Amino acid sequence: MSRQPYDPATHGLSVAPMMDWTDRHCRVFHRLLAPHARLYTEMVHAQAVIHGDRERLLGFDPVEHPVALQLGGSDPGHLAQATRIGADWGYDEVNLNVGCPSDRVQAGRFGACLMKEPALVADAVAAMIAAAPAHVPVTVKCRLGVDEMEDYEVFRAFVDGVAAAGCTHFVVHARKAWLQGLSPKENREIPPLRYDWVYRLKRERADLRIEINGGLATLEQVQAVMPEVDGVMIGRAAYHEPYRLHLMDRALFASTLPPRTRAQLLESMRPYVEDCLSRGIALKHQSRHWLGLFHGQPGGRLFRQVLSEGAPRAGAGWSLVERALEATRTG
């Protein structure tokens, strides 16, 4: 697949960065499902980018474009250096995480707790923009607030401060986060969704690109919010039931082509899979991202079972995938 020119104004569908899930093998699969979507890496701390194994942390397949690097951190100098490195590696966008509520990010003073430090976020974003080439936008993914923050004007002031530093593109998870008392999973489910705040922000700050994230799982839900914002970001629904992502891409980008079947999509992964196998990358590292492809379909449970049990075994190869597909035809 050839690289598409990256235009933030036209990429209205994206797949959220998800820790332990959206690795390079997942992203290659998602690119096959959604040729027009913007993909994100897992969050990588700026210090890891600077000092860690960059091939492991930053390496990606050219087919993934447009792909964004999401950074965690709060030190403007470190974030600027990591941004420059990410741009040198060929990422199309660098995104700052101001939304993750886990204990680990709180201990490191990054993620959602930065919603309480708008001046620091603005300084970090300004440093990142200064370090990035003009063709690599710096964006922010945030929440509506944290803990006791219940005021729309406070949320808008946060956005305004970061926008004044040069950021024009915000992905808003339409919930606030509780930093104490709720797990990351609960923070994705318990705080109420407030799409109206995001819609209002877009109306009042029409010059900013505003995307919405949170609770969007079906094509109908996505189509309902699209008129109010500039784009939608899909998270766990795209991972657990990846065929939905394919249907969204087809519908949103007015493709004249009918959706491909689940089997056709997976069979198209064969060249990539066999290349990985030839380089010693075990099948299990790739197949774990496909397990929900036949969710709710005849033979879907057996498909998942064949892959789950067989892929970790030494020597597992494409023939196992063929057996799993056969299960969907006979199950």
Rank of each mutant, 00 (worst) to 15 (best):
T261Q: 00
P298R: 04
D7E: 03
V146E: 12
V225L: 00
E64D: 15
T256S: 13
R301I: 04
G59Q: 01
C276T: 01
P312H: 01
D61G: 09
R301N: 02
M18S: 10
L307E: 04
A263D: 04
F253M: 00
L39H: 05
V67S: 10
L219E: 10
I129W: 09
P191A: 14
I234D: 07
V222I: 11
C26E: 10
Q106C: 10
R38H: 09
P312T: 01
R200P: 00
P184H: 04
G280R: 08
N95F: 15
M18I: 12
A254P: 00
L245K: 11
R313S: 02
G111C: 12
Q223G: 07
H246G: 11
R156D: 15
G300S: 02
P118Q: 09
I212A: 00
D249V: 10
V172T: 03
E220S: 12
E322D: 13
G181K: 11
P8H: 02
G59T: 03
A327M: 07
A9Y: 06
S287P: 02
Q81S: 15
M226Y: 00
F29Y: 10
A112P: 08
P62N: 08
A124H: 10
A165I: 09
T218A: 02
V125S: 08
F158M: 15
H25P: 01
A263K: 05
V306E: 05
K202C: 01
Y91E: 14
G331H: 03
L96I: 03
R194C: 08
R323P: 02
R56K: 14
Y199A: 00
L33H: 11
D207Y: 05
P5F: 06
W21C: 11
R109H: 14
K185M: 15
C167P: 14
R200I: 00
P66A: 13
G310Q: 01
M269K: 01
A119K: 08
R84V: 06
